[in-house]
Design a protein around this nucleic acid. Structure first.
Length: 328
DNA sequence: GTCCAGGATGGGC
DNA sequence: GCCCATCATGGA
């Protein structure tokens, strides 16, 4: 920290050192502004295209190239606005009274959310010469695997999405979040955060059945909440395990099969070799890209996945993205 | 009305 | 181990 001169109450650092005063604005009208350096091959526009896939999404809003959401930090919850900077940077706007520790936590959250710490060059080299991935690379270059940093959210979202169409899954999530999450008013609109496991752990099955969740899904979600609330299940603990062991442990949870374990591994734990080979969306995407008459079987997908090595999760994410076209 | 959707479980064999 | 009925709702 030597060499960083405190300007006022606020002192900001990035992994590259301290930020120049030009990168910090702390006017009361628009809050605090910080920048996050992004890799040269990152394009926020592609991420926005992914984030904007459902009008029913409840955990963030996308307007006019800007993402707005509340983020739960360890000390407090705060709103953030994320937009594209001039060059290789994200512009992040925060409340005026935000403190340095909060800013560092926000930056960690956003780097994880958009998977900014990963070197994608090997994936792009692989994709260039891959008959399935090459056309997707041309279409979605700059897209990163959008993560779900909150383990409870990732597990619930996966369970909710089991065997139903995606739009209905968004409806289930919205109803769940609005019933048991925390809402905050900001600029005339309510922003929602995902419920805490501690709250869901105390619910009864009928509480969730009222939200159109099935009996089974209600049982699964409350069970997951109780496991997390008791400390028996945690992201920190899963991250200490080898990839395969973590997925094995996830599968011990009632309601978590092979698909869900792999889904959570790739979206939450950041396992790049995770591969939900039984996924219907993945099957449809491969069928479409290869012009097949029928959907590939999970066995055929596993065979295909072999050539993607440790980049199966990225291949999957790009294939999912291809199901929804290029426009928001 | 039928079929499918970003599956998992518990039963039977 | 594999196969199958069941769950349970919405959209095409």
């Amino acid at each position: 920290m030597a060499g960083c001169r405190p300007t006022d109450a606020l002192v900001l650092f990035t992994e590259g050192g301290c930020l120049s005063a030009a990168n910090v604005k702390n006017d009361n009208g628009h809050g605090t502004e910080v920048r996050i350096k992004t890799p040269g091959d990152f394009r926020l526009s592609e991420t926005l295209g992914y984030l904007w896939r459902s009008p029913t999404e409840i955990l963030y809003r996308v307007n006019d190239g800007e993402i707005v959401r509340y983020i739960p930090l360890s000390r407090r919850k705060i709103w953030v606005k994320v937009s594209a900077g001039d060059s290789d940077a994200l512009v992040v706007r925060l409340p005026a009274d935000v403190r340095r520790v909060d800013i560092e936590e926000v930056k960690r959250f956003l780097r994880e959310w958009f998977d900014l710490s990963r070197d994608l060059a090997p994936f792009y080299r692989l994709a260039e010469s891959d008959e399935v991935l090459a056309p997707l690379l041309a279409q979605f270059y700059g897209l990163r695997l959008v993560r779900v940093p909150d383990l409870f959210e990732a597990l619930c979202w996966a369970v909710m999405g089991q065997q139903i169409n995606l739009e209905f899954a968004y409806t289930l999530k919205r109803q769940f979040v609005q019933a048991y999450g925390q809402g905050s008013m900001f600029e005339g609109q309510t922003h929602w955060m995902f419920p805490d496991p501690s709250r869901i752990a105390r619910l009864q099955i009928p509480d969730l059945r009222r939200l159109q969740l099935t009996q089974r899904k209600s049982e699964y979600i409350i069970g997951i909440a109780q496991a997390m609330d008791s400390g028996q299940l945690s992201k920190a603990q899963l991250l200490t395990l080898e990839d395969g062991e973590a997925r094995q442990q996830l599968r011990q949870i009632r309601g978590v099969g092979d698909w869900t374990a792999n889904y959570v591994a790739m979206r939450c734990l950041g396992h790049m070799s995770a591969f939900p080979a039984g996924d219907v969306g993945l099957q449809n995407a491969v069928r479409q890209v290869r012009g097949m008459a029928r959907k590939p079987t999970p066995a055929e997908l596993l065979e295909l996945g072999r050539q993607w090595g440790d980049w199966k999760a990225y291949a999957t994410f790009y294939l999912w993205r291809s199901l929804r076209g290029t426009s928001p």
